[in-house]
């Protein structure tokens, strides 16, 4: 499954990286704790969070995540600039994290975990 099909199916807003949507996605991970994501999220997975600050981009970029989906939070301009600088796909959804996760799962996406 690639990012474009997920973005279209769930009508996600693409904040950065609309030229990178052909990227394949390996699964999903939800957490608002950065060290938890660093410990367990796998490369190429989607990260769903409501932490909207630049350290999220640093972590996602460091791990080589497929995209970050921000839920239920305002998005500062500096965050978008940082994501663009790092060539990271930043998405936004109007759904609550729980509903978004359910819809991602219904699309066939599964949780990813790197041990």
């Amino acid at each position: 499954m690639n990012l474009r099909s997920i973005v279209e199916a769930l009508q996600l807003e693409v904040l950065t990286g609309d030229d990178l949507l052909d990227r394949p996605i390996s699964g999903g991970y939800i957490s608002d704790m950065l060290s938890d994501v660093l410990a367990h999220a796998a490369p190429d997975c989607l990260w769903v969070t409501r932490q909207a600050h630049q350290n999220v981009i640093a972590v996602a970029s460091l791990l080589g995540l497929g995209a970050v989906i921000l839920v239920n939070c305002p998005v500062p301009a500096a965050l978008i600039d940082k994501a663009r600088d790092e060539s990271l796909v930043l998405l936004q959804s109007d759904l609550m994290a729980f509903e978004l996760a359910g819809q991602l799962y219904a699309l066939g996406l599964r949780g990813c975990r790197r041990d």
Binding site: D32, M33, L34, S35, D36, L38, A39, N55, V56
Partner: peptide, 10 residues
């Protein structure tokens, strides 16, 4: 900010 999970050193 999402830090302080107590997972840094581990």
């Amino acid at each position: 900010l999402g830090f302080g999970a107590g997972m840094g050193l581990p």
